[in-house]
Computed example of a mutant assay.
Amino acid sequence: MDQRISFITLAVRDLDVTRAFYLDGLGWRAEVDVPGEVLMIRTGRHLVLSLWDAGAFEAEVGPIARGAGAPPITLAHNVATPEEVDAILARARGLGADPIQDAMQREWGGYSGYFADPDGYRWEIAVNPGPIGQLVLPGTGS
């Protein structure tokens, strides 16, 4: 696994307030903006900040930490093929990582699965076939 982070995903309580803060307030530009669902902002050559509606976040990743549960953040490592996703998940699990969710085809067109690091932080290993996915792969983004 290359030493890099592709996405930083934060669960947010009110996506409209978040959009106003980052886009209108800070003047950042969205790469992807799906009202009521997600706002994605390129923050580096191969790094995207994904601000995700908390309800949608919980539906895919699990309960937000309100006491027990997953911290309300995921770290994503994007790769080019489903085989790479499977190999990295297997390697992490071989190292003792908690297998949160097996890799599967997602309704948004990608393929991903999750594991938790020793502190419980969720890592998504993913193939994202869309333009935002290409943006974060070394050698493909501009």
Results as ranks from 00 to 15, higher is better:
Asp2Ala: 12
Ile5Ser: 02
Ser6Glu: 07
Ser6Ile: 06
Phe7Arg: 00
Thr9Asp: 00
Leu10Glu: 02
Leu10Lys: 08
Leu10Gln: 08
Ala11His: 01
Ala11Tyr: 01
Val12Ser: 00
Arg13Cys: 09
Arg13Val: 06
Asp16Cys: 03
Val17Asp: 13
Val17Tyr: 08
Thr18Leu: 08
Thr18Pro: 04
Arg19Gln: 03
Arg19Cys: 01
Ala20Ile: 07
Phe21Asp: 04
Phe21Gly: 03
Tyr22Ser: 07
Tyr22Leu: 08
Leu23Ile: 05
Leu23Val: 07
Leu23His: 06
Leu23Pro: 02
Asp24Tyr: 09
Gly25Lys: 09
Trp28Pro: 01
Arg29Asp: 14
Glu31Asn: 11
Asp33Tyr: 06
Pro35Tyr: 14
Pro35Ala: 10
Val38Asn: 05
Val38Trp: 05
Leu39His: 01
Leu39Ala: 02
Leu39Val: 02
Met40Thr: 04
Met40His: 13
Arg42Ile: 01
Arg42Lys: 10
Gly44Val: 11
Arg45Met: 13
His46Glu: 12
Leu49Asp: 03
Leu51Cys: 04
Asp53Glu: 14
Asp53Lys: 05
Ala54Gly: 05
Gly55Phe: 06
Ala56Met: 11
Phe57Thr: 01
Phe57Asp: 01
Phe57Ile: 04
Phe57Glu: 03
Glu58Asp: 13
Glu58Ile: 03
Glu58Phe: 06
Ala59Ser: 14
Gly62Val: 00
Pro63Val: 12
Ala65Cys: 13
Gly69Ala: 14
Pro71His: 14
Pro72His: 09
Ile73Glu: 09
Ile73Val: 15
Thr74Glu: 02
Thr74Gly: 01
Leu75Lys: 04
Ala76Met: 14
His77Val: 01
Asn78Trp: 04
Val79Arg: 00
Val79Thr: 09
Ala80His: 12
Ala80Cys: 09
Ala80Val: 07
Thr81Asp: 08
Thr81Gly: 10
Glu83Phe: 10
Ala87Asp: 06
Ala87Lys: 05
Ala87Gly: 12
Leu89Ser: 06
Ala90Cys: 08
Arg91Cys: 05
Gly94His: 10
Leu95Met: 15
Leu95Asn: 12
Asp98Asn: 10
Asp98Met: 13
Ala103Thr: 02
Met104Glu: 15
Gln105Ser: 15
Arg106Met: 15
Glu107Arg: 14
Glu107Trp: 14
Glu107Ser: 13
Glu107Met: 14
Trp108Met: 07
Gly109Ala: 11
Gly109Ile: 05
Gly110Thr: 02
Gly110Cys: 05
Gly113Glu: 03
Tyr114His: 09
Tyr114Ile: 01
Phe115Gly: 00
Ala116Asp: 08
Asp117Glu: 11
Pro118Val: 08
Pro118Ser: 14
Trp123Leu: 01
Glu124Gly: 00
Ala126Asn: 07
Val127Gly: 00
Asn128Thr: 07
Pro129Gln: 11
Pro131Trp: 13
Pro131His: 11
Pro131Ser: 14
Ile132His: 07
Gly133Asp: 00
Gln134Trp: 09
Gln134His: 15
Gln134Asn: 11
Leu135Lys: 00
Val136Ala: 04
Val136Gln: 03
Leu137Thr: 03
Thr140Ser: 13
Ser142Lys: 12
